[in-house]
Write a protein that binds this DNA or RNA. Structure first.
Lengths: 254, 254
DNA sequence: AATGTATTTTGATCTACATCAATGGTTACT
DNA sequence: AGTAACCATTGATGTAGATCAAAATACATT
């Protein structure tokens, strides 16, 4: 089993795709999680034709900002990205951490401008998909339309879960749930579900979960003392996933 | 300017639509906020043909539950509905209050079953749109596909806002924002933006906003004492919208 | 109209978590 | 290599809002 590369490594599947080659969705390690799922032969080639270009961002670089004109859906090939929104007075809420195979910018379709900002957490490679042409193409390829709807629907569902998390769960449950969620997503990408590297800071995690950075630290320490996990800086091992799930779901504090 | 009907009134546009007549989107007071937006003549007739049936629910009745098989998108004609999700141990989070022109069940597309439950808050009339046939139709009518995407995108954006609310704003800001949001939505439906009837209880509001029922009451009292609003039971008047917005957005507690 | 039930409101108390503060460990930059 | 900036951790203290409790009001049912 592969282990999640740490942020020093450049997480691009293979040097082949670095070249000016076409975008070869089929060669991309995560196409089954991405737009091309369910597409075949010629249709996939068509989809590749609306991929304007591929870009890589370094840690801290912006992919887009709230208010920017909406031209592209971003599909992550490798690396990770955080998205956030903010209040007029400057408070920031991170709305998601995104990894390979996930799409960014879906909320921009409604208004024609991005409503959130997206920033690379590590070296990150993305496909820029022309929104307008994707729309046209979806009209021609039923299974592409279906896949897009499914992805958006999935996003809505995921947001429902996050609301439940933010509204009804205590800090301990939130963090446990967070670690489990990461684990699942890594597993779906053939990374180890029990050993991985966090590309985001404690502060980012806390912001996302609606708790303070210090609380994240204290809870990680508590989980570690209870033998549920081991941490060394941003490297995390989930030792007792079963019990971690118990903390996330059935906390007696309920 | 019309005033929001209270929960005793039956909020159906006109007796005409009660009959077994076709579904006449064009006659529906909210079609501009709903799926048919952007559709013309024949296309609208086609859309009407995938409206399986129209139903009304009384206060407290379930439209669907989490886990039910996903067959229909529900479009609200009149009345209001709350949607909620819950933890395995029974805690509930209300994820939205929905009024005329809004769609329910969008998050079910991804998995084929509803992920949330929907319950009428007052007598409510809905169109049941066959999900599968709607999908097919969207392939034939580009502007319908576009409108569906736009609606889903809008939902995602709205959820981002709610996360910001739940994660970063204090109780006072949440409630002020909530009242303003209601006001806007009523305005878009040609109801008074300053005088309306809440179809949900204080407990529901608190649940949705992630605060206790008692806190909702205390804050409403505080707003009232400050001359921002007047309340009498579930009847609310927004007296100083400007200042209410100030509370929602620029609270110095930030 | 009367009775039972649910909702709203207000007050008193408690607590989970935020905030403030200080230190050591890592990483980035020149 | 050295230094600046950042990030993680732990402790001490404060507080927004939860929870508990109880009364007042409205609504539903007969």
């Amino acid at each position: 089993m592969k282990v999640m590369p740490d942020s020093k490594a450049i997480p691009i599947p293979s040097p082949l795709h670095q070249a000016c080659e076409p975008f070869a969705c089929e060669q991309c390690g995560v196409y089954r999680l991405c737009l091309p799922l369910g597409l075949h032969g010629g249709d996939m080639t068509l989809l590749e034709s609306v991929v304007k270009r591929k870009e890589t961002y370094k840690r801290g670089q912006l992919l887009f900002r709230a208010g920017d004109r909406f031209d592209f859906i971003y599909a992550i090939r490798g690396g990770s990205v955080k998205t956030s929104v903010c209040t007029p007075d400057g408070r920031v809420q991170i709305t998601g951490f995104h990894v390979a195979g996930e799409l960014l910018g879906l909320s921009a379709l409604a208004s024609g401008e991005y409503s959130s900002e997206a920033r690379a957490l590590e070296t990150t490679s993305v496909c820029l998909v022309e929104a307008e042409r994707l729309d046209e193409l979806a009209q021609k390829i039923p299974s592409l339309q279906y896949q897009m709807m499914k992805i958006m629907s999935g996003q809505i569902r995921q947001d429902e879960e996050l609301m439940l998390l933010l509204g009804r769960r205590n800090a301990e449950e939130r963090l446990a749930e967070y670690l489990i969620g990461l684990s699942r997503r890594f597993a779906a990408r053939n990374f180890s579900p029990t050993q991985f590297n966090l590309s985001m800071s404690r502060g980012d995690i806390g912001n996302y979960l609606g708790i303070a950075e210090e609380t994240v630290c204290r809870l990680l320490t508590r989980f570690q003392n209870a033998g549920l996990i081991a941490t060394k800086r941003r490297q995390v091992s989930l030792i007792d996933l079963r019990q971690l799930e118990a903390v996330a779901r059935m906390n007696p504090a309920a």
